[in-house]
């Protein structure tokens, strides 16, 4: 009898748990986001960095509302959390770097990139990402990083690939570098205290280090390809099939936002203060990325080739399926 009671309690517990779970499923599987009065609210998974300024600026300028879209930004900790969020339907759209997207595609994760995200400036020494060494460091070129400790934010991802390639281009052996994983925000302190010899950082960590006297020895993203497409917005294949109209609207609004953002750097520096806490002196010195309206396919192919060369894919990704 008592065991029966315990069983019943456990059963009730499970029932409640599954009930909660399934009610959530029905919410997310409606997949349209919530719509009211002709406006569709879509959730976008992003990282709070300058790269996603077009979404905030486009929202402010009314480019999205013009298409009947309202963006609800969800800040994710690092891009890795965004891909599962999009495939499981928690976000309708997401922002992710090209390498992560290609790795996901090569693993048959059902996603497709739908709009350009952000591109390197293509200018050596004036890119939004760079390889820096401490002030007064004897290291003058990427070649000298052989046997040295270099920090990247994520191993086996875009920054590792581009750093290795810069070392190779400078005449060094890319396999001899000692890469360590470190979050961007921890790089300035680590470089300063000598825990690492060099850091591959993007803004705002890059400017923070430069303001402390760090010297840029290479612009790895520029080295890979001129105007490298670094990141894109993507959605799940299922969502794109069910809601082609919304995806199209998102693409159009994003294209308009990208064009506007690219030509209004002052407004970018202003809008960034609304969703990050970047200090004013860093913000003023920040190198802004480029926001072309379209992805640069040949640069993505170059990145794909490198990623393959450094063993990121089990099978090569199908760019025709991935790209818009």
């Amino acid at each position: 009898m008592r065991r029966l009671l315990a069983g019943l309690t456990a059963g009730a517990f499970l029932l409640v748990a599954t009930a909660c779970g399934s009610s959530d499923d029905s919410n997310s599987s409606s997949d349209k986001g919530s719509s009211s009065g002709g406006t569709t609210t879509v959730k976008v998974g992003i990282i709070p960095i300058v790269d996603v300024a077009p979404l905030y600026l486009g929202q402010k300028k009314g480019f999205f509302s013009k298409q009947g879209l309202k963006l609800s930004m969800t800040l994710a900790q690092g891009g890795a959390a965004i891909v599962p969020g999009v495939t499981s339907g928690q976000f309708q759209f997401g922002f992710s770097n090209m390498t992560s997207l290609m790795v996901a595609q090569s693993n048959n994760v059902p996603i497709e990139a739908i709009a350009n995200g952000v591109a390197s400036t293509g200018v050596e020494g004036k890119d939004f990402g760079g390889l820096v060494v401490k002030k007064g460091s004897p290291i003058k070129s990427a070649k000298e990083l052989e046997g040295k400790k270099v920090a990247v934010n994520t191993l086996k991802n875009i920054n590792e690939i581009v750093v290795r390639d810069s070392i190779r281009r400078a005449g060094g052996d890319p396999d001899k570098v000692n890469l360590v994983e470190l979050a961007f925000d921890q790089m300035p302190a680590a470089l300063d205290s000598g825990q690492i010899d060099a850091a591959m950082a993007v803004e705002p960590a890059l400017t923070t280090m430069k303001l402390q006297g760090a010297v840029e020895i290479a612009s790895p993203m520029v080295d890979v390809a001129p105007d490298l497409t670094v990141a894109m917005y993507f959605t799940s294949t299922a969502y794109a099939q069910k809601n082609p109209a919304i995806v199209k609207k998102f693409q159009e609004a994003t294209a308009e936002s990208l064009a506007y953002t690219d030509t209004h750097p002052d407004e970018v520096r202003q809008i960034v203060t609304t969703y990050t806490k970047t200090p004013a002196n860093v913000l003023a010195a920040l190198t802004l990325p480029k926001w072309p309206a379209d992805a640069n396919r040949s640069s993505i192919e170059a990145l794909e080739k490198l990623s393959e060369q450094y063993g990121l894919f089990k099978t090569a990704p199908d760019l025709d399926k991935l790209l818009p």
Partner: peptide, 9 residues
């Protein structure tokens, strides 16, 4: 806190 951290603030 996380945003302040990524913003170098």
């Amino acid at each position: 806190i996380a945003v302040a951290q990524t913003s170098q603030a």
